[in-house]
Design a binder for these strands. Structure first.
Lengths: 318, 318
DNA sequence: CAATTAGACGGGCAATTATTCATTCAGACT
DNA sequence: AGTCTGAATGAATAATTGCCCGTCTAATTG
């Protein structure tokens, strides 16, 4: 026993020595092997032992480090395909710029591809801010398609028309949806969607290679309410039905299940797919949205998330 | 200015991201390149930037880590060719075992060589303890030579006969020095050294491929005094002449310069070389010896050191 | 005591990482 | 505008690292 213990101890000592020489002193494994009087392979084993025994601890002295941890944690916890967390600037309340830059980076990377892509977009302030961050580009090979209408029921344009703005910037073919966000009734919705142009656009959206959406909360500060798409009474009914969030105006409950009836009967936007095969990336920031984001992840309505540090903390500590 | 700053910042952010993915998440640089949307070379540059900008900090969770730092510090500060520091066991007062094992490891490594080597040995408790740690070996190709006599002036054997003990263990040719440590006078010393055998041994010692010595302090607890080689009066005279330490009974002052006259006139051991070309490694432990070790390093009487943590701390904080 | 087995070792090779070099590109200056 | 400079980039290549496999050693077991 004592012999084995000593043996193990001295092996760990050597591992520590090797780890120190490698990570702190910057020696190569060959040099370590010479200094420790062992073969290079043994030196390699010692270094890797030092790592696997957790003798070496790496710390990253940069605000980004926390973001990476959070992102990693969210990926693990909710089975996301991707997650990016922007640092929250404690000074600036307009926390959008961080995520907007991140999202813009993602979008830009996709646009740089030579292969034609179909990019589907929802709406929302965060998404709009992201598009604003895009540089001028020339991407005629791609198509940008809207997931939902850009009209109020009375025909007025909605304030956050992301598709057209983006197409402006990057010079791509684009397909805004010539529909109101909500039809006046289920029948009207079906009627509208039977138009060939609308039908084509919905089909295009279904084939999208990547989808970016916003997530809205339901309640007093809900985008849908603030922007006048639903009334106070409808909001109350939705809350009573368990609604906590919405994506492209489709309202869902805590488990991420779409609410039956109510406004969902009249939503004209493309249907959400559960556990989509292609990336569906939500851009969403804010403590108010935490419940909605959680629900969307639980229900597999999205498989990617771009958010900020503060929101990510709440999502993980829930 | 603001643009440049932003640019630099975002570059560092990316570097931090890359560093995190590499060191914390264990990604390969290829994966990082894909995730960050840059070329593999750029990913490599980002990782190395994160290192050179000190964003990644590596810590080693093992007592050895401190020893490695101390060793590195001593090498730098005193221009040593090598330095090893054994962990001090706060519980055990007999701090010798740590350094003894280290030294034994060094010696063993040399003995394993197929090329014939000449190993010169001094005396001392630490050196003796090291030899005790040697395993049984069979090394007829090497020669072990003593740097100094193993007799008291009256012909009695000295207690720490390292060479014979070591030769016992490793079965190597050995050359103990058939001389007293101190002759009775300078004339007697010269006479003794003219014997052919002695002359040959001294020449062999001069050619040694590697030399291991102990370092003694001068004073009340000095090995020379305790073991009865010098008298109290001689000790007093030496101290008055500035003596702080000795190696193979050659006494030197604070600057590592050999003291003129006194006992040095009568030392029969091989002369110390200043700034030796081959490794001359001292094995020395203890707060009492700090002054002596410092002096030996200053005077370039040694170019290698094996000591323990506590002693190393004192050497560096001096 | 022989058989078995777990673990370490080193050789060789594939994968990964670091470096060098020529080129490009943006901005500064003439 | 032309030219220079310095940074950034990608390609090529050199260096380093990680992994697999056959071999050997030592401990365990029957």
């Amino acid at each position: 026993m004592s012999t084995a213990g000593d043996h193990e101890t001295s092996r760990l000592d050597d591992a520590a020595r090797a780890g120190w020489l490698y990570y702190v002193a910057g020696n190569t494994q060959d040099e370590i092997a010479r200094k420790l009087g062992v073969s290079r392979q043994s030196a390699q084993r010692l270094v890797s032992l030092a790592v696997s025994e957790k003798l070496v601890k790496v710390r990253l002295d940069h605000p980004i480090a926390r973001c990476m941890e959070l992102s990693h944690g969210l990926v693990e916890k909710f089975g996301l395909a991707s997650c990016e967390v922007a640092p929250s600037d404690p000074g600036a309340p307009a926390a959008l710029t961080g995520v907007a830059q991140l999202a813009a980076g993602d979008i830009e990377r996709i646009l740089k591809s030579d292969h034609p892509k179909i990019i589907a977009l929802g709406t929302g302030r965060a998404l709009r801010a992201s598009v604003e961050q895009l540089p001028k580009m020339d991407c005629p090979q791609h198509r940008i398609v809207s997931l939902l209408g850009n009209m109020m029921s009375d025909g007025a344009a909605t304030p956050y028309n992301v598709v057209i703005r983006m197409a402006d910037r990057v010079n791509a073919r684009h397909y805004p949806m010539p529909l109101p966000v909500f039809a006046r009734s289920m029948e009207e919705k079906l009627l509208l969607q039977q138009q060939e142009a609308v039908h084509n656009i919905l089909e295009l959206a279904r084939q999208a290679d990547v989808t970016f959406v916003g997530i809205g909360n339901i309640g007093d500060n809900a985008p849908l309410l603030v922007d006048g798409f639903v009334s106070r009474e409808e909001t109350r009914a939705l809350i009573k039905a368990g609604a906590v969030g919405e994506i492209t105006s489709w309202v869902f409950d805590r488990s991420g299940t779409l609410i039956d009836g109510l406004t969902n009967d009249r939503v004209a936007s493309a249907v959400l797919q559960i556990a989509p095969a292609k990336p569906v990336i939500a851009i969403a920031v804010g403590i108010l949205k935490v419940e909605a984001i959680l629900a969307a992840m639980r229900g597999r309505l999205i498989n990617g998330l771009i958010t900020d540090e503060a929101t990510a903390e709440h999502l993980l500590n829930h």
